[in-house]
């Protein structure tokens, strides 16, 4: 049942063999997965490091206009969107 209705059950080894084309099918899927996951990971990493730098900068600067907001954005809990979406005008 796992492999669709009406089909005979496929042994795992036969599935992995891909009708003799395993050496071509699996690397294709592997390369696609590698590139897509790699891009996502790199993106997340740069986003996290950027947000950390931003928080450090905001914490270090003397809060003038935004004195009320400064503690919130400096605290570690404000990881995500709210801290980033704050607008600095002027």
């Amino acid at each position: 049942m796992l492999f669709g209705t009406g089909e005979p059950f496929l042994p795992m080894s036969e599935f992995l063999a891909m009708g003799g084309y395993a050496a071509f099918v699996w690397p294709s899927y592997g390369v696609a997965a590698l590139i897509m996951v790699g891009l996502l990971a790199a993106t997340l990493k740069s986003l996290r490091s950027g947000e950390a730098t931003l928080r450090a900068l905001e914490g270090s600067r003397p809060a003038r206009r935004r004195r009320d907001r400064a503690p919130a954005s400096a605290s570690a809990s404000a990881v995500n969107a709210p801290a980033v979406s704050e607008v600095r005008e002027g």
Binding site: T43, L44, L47
Partner: peptide
């Protein structure tokens, strides 16, 4: 996500 990261980078730049 990348756009977000870019915006964060720009804010860092202007703050610096």
């Amino acid at each position: 996500l990348r756009l977000r990261a870019e915006i964060v980078q720009r804010r860092i730049q202007t703050m610096r």
